[in-house]
């Protein structure tokens, strides 16, 4: 009974002749999901990211101690134990609570960088690719200039100019991470701009703006999503690096990179201070990488039926 209901729902989704816009769209999403969920590692990556989201959302409920106020008198540098799962740091703060709250800052950095850098890259790349000529040359040379700097060094320069702090770190990382997106979007645009279906829209009298926005960008978005997801690990590491150098999050913010930096002074005797945030960075980066790989298989525009 239920089996037949499930089967017919699947048939509805996979129907060759959808009866509504919604059904067509859902069917498409379902096909992508089936390809994605066939990949077990990708599912693990997605679970890690969902766990990160849940932890960040319920940090208040999940933590027994304050992330910023410690017990200097009784709880300095305690090893992991029943009272403090991951131990405590040099200011007597519970490291487990700090790691949990740190998830919020990690998400904050990653999401902000993605929503600043990806649209800039997409816009620059598609406009350069579609317009060609001088516009292309100018936009792509600017992109080249940004690409010529090592990412972390350029981010350092920006933070030094803007002043330390997590907002400025986000800005600096965003400014340094859009050029690869512009390159991808441009390459993708070049492959479709001379196709007949773009010509057909031109023949309807569509403005170049409309063609780029409504016909070319949708084709670039899936490869961009894949690239951004794969880059998220790098973004986390750059943010952690800036935090480690003291130019990202400022104390007492529980940011993972800054936590490792403060743990480095006693890394040999009290290893757990740096180990917990380090492991957190490792796991989340791995999660984003696995998710990105899975998305590449599911969304790649070059694979099979589009």
């Amino acid at each position: 009974m239920t089996a037949s209901v499930v089967l017919s729902r699947r048939e509805w989704l996979l129907s060759d002749r959808p009866a509504s816009r919604l059904q067509a769209r859902l069917g498409r999403a379902y096909v992508a999901w089936r390809r994605f969920s066939a990949n077990r590692l990708a599912l693990i990556g997605m679970l890690i990211i969902i766990a990160l989201l849940v932890v960040a959302a319920f940090a208040d409920v999940l933590t027994p101690y304050s992330p910023t106020v410690g017990d200097l008198k009784n709880a300095r540098l305690l090893p992991p134990g029943a009272a403090h799962w991951f131990g405590t740091d040099d200011l007597g703060r519970d490291i487990y609570s700090r790691v949990v709250y740190g998830a919020r800052w990690t998400l904050y950095v990653v999401i902000l960088v993605a929503i600043i850098a990806a649209p800039i890259g997409l816009l620059v790349g598609t406009i350069a690719g579609y317009a060609g000529g001088w516009t292309d040359t100018i936009l792509m040379r600017i992109t080249d200039i940004f690409l010529a700097f090592p990412k972390l060094v350029l981010a350092l320069a920006f933070v030094a100019a803007l002043g330390p702090g997590i907002e400025n770190a986000v800005l600096a990382i965003a400014i340094t991470s859009w050029p690869p997106y512009a390159r991808i979007a441009r390459a993708e645009t070049l492959t479709v701009r001379n196709s007949d279906y773009i010509k057909a829209v031109q023949l309807m009298g569509a403005s170049p703006f409309r063609i780029v926005l409504r016909h070319i960008m949708p084709l670039c978005i899936s490869s961009l999503i894949i690239r951004v997801t794969l880059d998220m690990a790098g973004i986390i590491l750059t943010a952690a690096g800036l935090g480690f150098l003291g130019l990202g999050a400022q104390p007492p913010l529980p940011e993972w990179g800054a936590m490792i930096a403060s743990g480095r002074r006693f890394i040999l005797d009290q290893w757990w201070v740096a180990a917990a945030p380090g492991a957190a960075i490792l796991i989340v980066s791995l999660g984003f990488n696995l998710l990105g790989d899975g998305l590449r298989d599911a969304l790649d525009p070059r694979s099979g039926d589009q």
């Binding site: 196709s195 007949d196 279906y197 010509k199 057909a200 829209v201 016909h215 949708p218 084709l219 525009p301 589009q306």
Partner: peptide, 11 residues
Amino acid sequence: FQDPYGSLHPR
């Protein structure tokens, strides 16, 4: 257009 496989937007 000549080629119906290339003249419709794939998405």
